[in-house]
């Protein structure tokens, strides 16, 4: 049921690296460093502004992928990566979308596990990629069965 979503992507969504959201996020990961939260410190830095923590893109809206239906519960976050060309700058607009990269199944002792690979993209207004992030979601047999009913 996930196989047919491979290659599908969402429509682009514009997100803003909001100052308040960056501050809250930095505090929530126990990293309220002045490069994230203090305006004057940011201005004096090489970025001439504050930046956002590397895992901040977690909060962006990437739009919905048509036909991809995920259960509300029971998903396992298997792995996660981020790749950056530069840090995110506070205040900038990021154009985001996501894509189903792959889906495959592996048999194990606890049944057949499904691996759904979703890739998220963040670009500037000139279509230059600022970051990508890839999430591998593990979907157990029990959870997949629940989806079919």
């Amino acid at each position: 049921m996930f196989e047919e979503t491979i290659g599908k992507r969402s429509k682009r969504c514009i997100n803003v690296v909001e100052r308040g959201a960056v501050k809250k996020f930095a505090e929530a990961i126990g990293d309220p460093h002045p490069i994230y939260v203090d305006r004057d410190y940011g201005r004096a830095s090489r970025y001439k502004n504050n930046i956002a923590p590397p895992t901040f893109p977690r909060i962006f809206d990437y739009g919905t992928i048509e036909g991809l239906r995920l259960p509300e519960a029971g998903l396992i976050h298997g792995s996660q990566d981020f790749e950056y060309n530069r840090p995110l700058i506070v205040g900038e607009e990021i154009v985001c979308f996501s894509k189903v990269e792959n889906y495959y199944e592996k048999s194990g002792t606890s049944g057949t596990l499904g691996f759904l690979v979703i890739k998220n993209f963040g670009e500037d207004s000139g279509d230059n990629v600022i970051f990508t992030s890839t999430t591998v979601i593990i979907i157990t047999e029990a959870v997949r069965k629940g989806l079919k009913t």
Binding site: D31, P53, P54, T55, Q80, F82, R86
Partner: peptide, 29 residues
């Protein structure tokens, strides 16, 4: 949240912001 732990981990590198940035950050939970 796995992402809470991953978010925390990035702080080891925060103070080096004038020298460079995290280009790739890959984690298995």
């Amino acid at each position: 949240h796995g992402m809470w732990t991953m978010g925390n981990l990035s702080k080891l590198f925060t103070s080096y912001h004038e020298e460079g940035f995290i280009k790739t950050f890959t984690i298995r939970f």
